[in-house]
Write a protein that binds this DNA or RNA. Structure first.
Length: 420
RNA sequence: GUGGGCGUAGCUCAGUUGGCAGAGCACCAGGUUGUGGUCCUGGGUGUCGGGGGUUCAAGUCCCCUCGCUCACCCCA
């Protein structure tokens, strides 16, 4: 052990060279959503605990046992965000964004927190990229969110992800179906925990991954067969729009998302190379969420995609970006006076738009040249007392070994021309 | 929350029936007091995760604990 401290249990951290893929993925996401007309929103990492309780749902595992909650010095109960959507909707309402043109299209990214047992691809602090389109029921927007996610995956070089699609019904048709399902489940020999879940949130029982439970619910009634006319029309249009974009999906009538606010469209992106935590992202429609948290009726659709899992998927597919040292020129000073001159030359090169670095720590020539080599720079800028006296520096092209003396006053101009 | 596997150098790992902590890579220095990659020489850089116990002696055996990991559950 190298220090008496370790990172808290279960957090994800990225250090070079792996961090390059993380950053590349996040940058690519910003480009993809910006192209699609989504504006950036920066949110607090913690919110009033009640926002999540009422938004995400009192009965969900996320709220009942996975939140990092604390009481601040003012006696307020705050919780680290376990997901993004509730906070985005809260901010939209608070700033009145929904009073302008609709839909309000927003994106954000950052860490979220859930107290769970860590596992491959599952962390207590994990990262998501998020997208929300608020203020329209238009099913084309449902399809747009999926298309944006796919464009991002494609830009990252991922090819193996699958889209699972379902409709969870709405306030009109779900209650009747829910009662029907509940009745069915009560007749099954389920274990106590599952039986309890059947009472609180029967749809989630359908999503159980245990084979014995799967077998029991094989003949359960499905929401998709009990959608009201409006929900069915909505769902059909979403599917039609996806087909228009040549986006492939798998109808998964048992797909149920773990957060209470989802209604109508629900979807999940799955990657086959990730083991148990194969869901790399998920989203859906949350037309009742605004009202749940005390706002006006305001439909919405959005997703959260796991950055950690996306990076794992990139690594699994062998398309993860590797750290690239963006260095054009590397300064190699010999002696104190030269070090001082190289230090300013490097700064001037940077100001001129040339990526530059130099050897620090009074390294010998050999060590400094080694640093030049490892930096990936095209040119080494070598300066010793002898050069200094002559008013020149040695510019060495590292690939060829070719070296020329260049007047100090021309260094920046000449190197700027060479690296272009 | 429940179960399985694993913790030895920066990394990947070896370490016999308990007997002086090792290898490869990486790193540092030198060969060359002004020239990198290749090569040669030298250097181990360590709380064997932590604590306790057994023993003449523990990396090795026992207990506890922390962490990592895989699966259940849940989900990103």
């Amino acid at each position: 052990m190298s220090s008496s401290f370790q990172a808290p249990k279960g957090v994800s951290e990225y250090v070079p060279p792996r961090s390059a893929a993380f950053l590349a993925a996040r940058d690519a996401y910003a480009r993809a959503v910006t192209r699609a007309g989504y504006g950036y929103i920066e949110l607090p990492v913690f919110e009033d605990t009640q926002l999540f309780a009422r938004g995400v749902g009192e009965s969900t595992d996320v709220v009942t046992k996975e939140m990092y909650s604390l009481t601040d010095r003012g006696g307020r109960s705050l919780s680290l965000r376990p997901e993004f959507t509730a906070g985005v909707v809260r901010a939209v309402l608070e700033h009145g964004l929904h009073k302008g043109q609709l839909p309000v299209k927003l994106w954000t990214t950052g860490p979220a927190f859930r107290y769970e047992r860590p596992q491959s691809g599952r962390y207590r602090q994990f990262y998501q990229v998020d997208l929300e389109a608020i203020g329209t029921e238009d099913p084309a927007v449902d399809a747009e969110t999926i298309a944006v996610a796919f464009d991002w995956y494609r830009e990252l070089g991922l090819t193996r992800q699958r889209l699972l699609l379902n409709s969870l019904g709405c306030r009109e048709c779900r209650p009747a179906y829910r009662a029907l399902l509940q009745e069915f489940l009560r007749g099954l020999p389920l274990d106590a925990a599952t039986q309890a879940r059947a009472e609180v949130n029967p749809l989630r029982v359908l999503d159980d991954k245990r084979p014995e439970v799967r077998a029991l619910v094989a003949d359960a009634p499905l929401m998709i067969d009990h959608l009201c006319a409006a929900c069915k029309a909505h769902h059909d249009t979403v599917r039609e729009r996806l087909a228009d974009l040549a986006i492939e999906w798998v109808d998964e009538p048992r797909l149920v998302r773990g957060l209470d606010y989802y209604m109508r469209t629900a979807y999940e992106f799955e990657h086959p190379l990730l083991g148990a935590q194969s869901g790399i992202g998920g989203g859906g429609r949350y037309d009742g969420l605004s009202e749940d948290i005390g706002g006006p009726p305001l439909p919405g659709i959005g997703f959260g995609l796991g950055l950690d899992r996306t990076v794992l998927a990139m690594e699994a597919e062998g398309v993860a970006a590797t750290a690239q040292r963006a260095c054009d020129v590397y300064g190699v000073p010999l002696g104190e006076a030269a070090q001082r001159r190289v230090f300013t030359l490097v700064a001037e090169l940077r100001r001129a738009g040339v990526a530059a670095d130099m050897a620090y720590g009074g390294k010998g020539l050999k060590g400094a040249m080694k640093g030049a080599d490892r930096s990936g720079a095209r040119f080494a800028l070598i300066l010793g007392e002898r050069d200094l006296a002559e008013g020149v520096a040695q510019v060495k092209e590292l690939a060829t070994g070719e070296q020329t003396a260049v007047p100090l006053d021309d260094i920046v101009t000449i190197l700027k021309g060479k690296v272009r």
